[in-house]
């Protein structure tokens, strides 16, 4: 009897709390998001002139062409291709020979592209597999290749990189990073 009563009590509690924490908590947030901050609430999407979504300013994309700044290695190839959507790091341990092999291979790719000693973040895979940033140093290292491929003077690229660099919060929190997608998009806009 008391077990039944207790169970019934718990059941009603479950229903009330579900409404409270799922419906009552979420709806106002959805309303505020869609009403006041639609850009952020919908994923900070980046569109081209045609209104077509070409990415999200928060999510990185893979780049292989010499005309673009290359982004960091991704264990999930930036959730592109036929595979289902995902996000993940490589999860390779520090002593795993596969890690050294991958770093060696990536370094070789950069060497072929004329960059002998790329910045570490260009060789290390990111935590999300979607990292939108590379370090400012990594971006600057790619200037010669870009300049050559796009026929742009390196001096024009420097300020562009600076403009697409997200600084540290209050100048001291976190690390600054260059947003690869918006930078490349800007590059496309300079000389389509």
């Amino acid at each position: 009897m008391s077990v039944l009563r207790e169970a019934f009590k718990a059941l009603r509690l479950t229903v009330v709390l579900w409404l409270l924490t799922v419906v009552l908590y979420t709806l106002p947030l959805l309303a505020v998001g869609q009403g006041l901050f639609p850009a952020q609430a919908n994923g900070s999407l980046l569109r081209n002139e045609g209104g077509q979504v070409i990415g999200s300013t928060l999510i990185g994309q893979p780049f292989a062409s010499n005309r673009y700044v290359w982004s960091r290695p991704s264990a999930v190839d930036y959730s592109t291709g036929k595979a289902a959507p995902t996000s993940a790091p490589s999860n390779l341990g520090p002593t795993n020979p596969d890690l050294a092999k991958r770093i060696k291979d990536t370094a070789a790719t950069y060497a072929q592209a004329g960059l002998a000693k790329p910045a570490a973040d260009l060789l290390y895979a990111s935590g999300s597999g979607l990292d939108p940033h590379i370090s400012p140093e990594a971006a600057r290292q790619q200037i010669p290749r870009l300049a050559a491929a796009r026929g742009l003077p390196p001096a024009r690229l420097e300020p562009l990189i600076r403009r697409h660099t997200q600084g540290r919060f209050l100048g001291c929190i976190g690390e600054s990073g260059v947003n690869v997608l918006t930078l490349n998009n800007a590059l496309d806009q300079i000389k389509p």
Binding site: R72, P89, S90, N91, L92, P94, L99, I103, K104, A107, K117, P118, A119, A120, D121, L123, Y124, A125, S126, G127, S128, D131, H133, I134, S135, Q166, G174, E175, G177
Partner: peptide
């Protein structure tokens, strides 16, 4: 042999 500096494997640039 290939790089120097902090261990960035599995880490995001914005956090370091």
């Amino acid at each position: 042999a290939w790089l120097s500096g902090p261990n960035l494997e599995g880490k995001e640039v914005r956090f370091g």
